[in-house]
Every structure is written in structure tokens, then in C-alpha cells.
Amino acid sequence: MKLIKNKYILPLIGFLAFLGFLDATYLTILHYKNAFPPCTITKGCETVLTSQFATIFGVPIALLGSLFYVSIIAVCLMFYHNSRKIFSNAIFFIAATGVIASILLFYIQLAILKNFCQYCVLSEIINLSIFFLSYSLFKKGKKKEEAKSS
């Protein structure tokens, strides 16, 4: 089953990563300004954003998120210019790392903090979408290789 045409997958990943970049960078800026954003949809996002889980070894998770999205965008551009398998694989593996982190962070919000922040949840949804899209790129790369070897 194919929901999205192949040629749209890469731009879609890039677009999602850009959205994620905006989201994460906004939180990073606010973190360094010692403020937290207005939380309109979910309750308790200040709880999440100021919790001990918001930083890891003094580095805000949001900053790691920004870097994560920038790397996705960069590898997407590389793949766009040169559709080598190594790039589609890289997108897939970076996206997989993102999903693992997302699941962990979602779990922390759900089970430990018992509060959600919409900015974080949005980023987690984006990561999951990027992961599924990149999986189809990854699969395509594999198929190509199999066709070549047989």
C-alpha cells in the first residue's frame, strides 16, 4: 500500500524537520531566556519545561532537538543532490534515534511528570512521522540493492 507518492517523501521529511526545528528552537531560545512559553492547549507545560528532565548534563533537550532536525534537513539535502543509499539510510537511522528519544520523553511526561507540553508532544508526533516516511526511503534503497545484486 502506498499512501504517498515517492517523490513527495523527501520534501515532506524536509518540511516536517523544518517544523520540528522551529518548535525546538523556540523552546531553546526560551530556555536560555529563563522563560517558558504560553501553554494554551495542555495543562502544565511549564512543569514539563522546567523539570529536571528538560536538560541533560546541563544541555536543554530542546537544543538537542534543534540539532537533530538540522541534521535531518542536511542529510535530506545531501540525498536530494545525490540519491545514494548511504544518505537514505542515514536519514532512517537519525529518525530512529529521534523516535527512541521521543518515546522516552513522552513516557516521562505521561508517567513521571503527569503533565504534557504541547510543544514537546508536537515534536514527538513530528519525529514519529519522519520515522515512518524515512522507513519507506530506507526500504526503497534496500529494494534497489536487492535488484542490483540479483
Partner: peptide, 25 residues
């Protein structure tokens, strides 16, 4: 393409800083 991407990212960071600095209410 690369320059465009870098430019867009820089502009959006700048925009976000403006948003973050504007009074929220």
C-alpha cells in the same frame, strides 16, 4: 539549495527570537 536552506534557517531563528522577545500578553 544549501545557501537557501541555511538562509531560511537563520531567518527563522531570528524570527523566533523576535517572537520570544515580544510580550506574550
Amino acid at each position: 539549495v544549501w545557501a537557501g536552506a541555511v538562509f531560511i534557517l537563520i531567518v527563522s531563528v531570528w524570527g523566533l527570537i523576535q517572537i520570544a522577545n515580544s510580550p506574550q500578553t
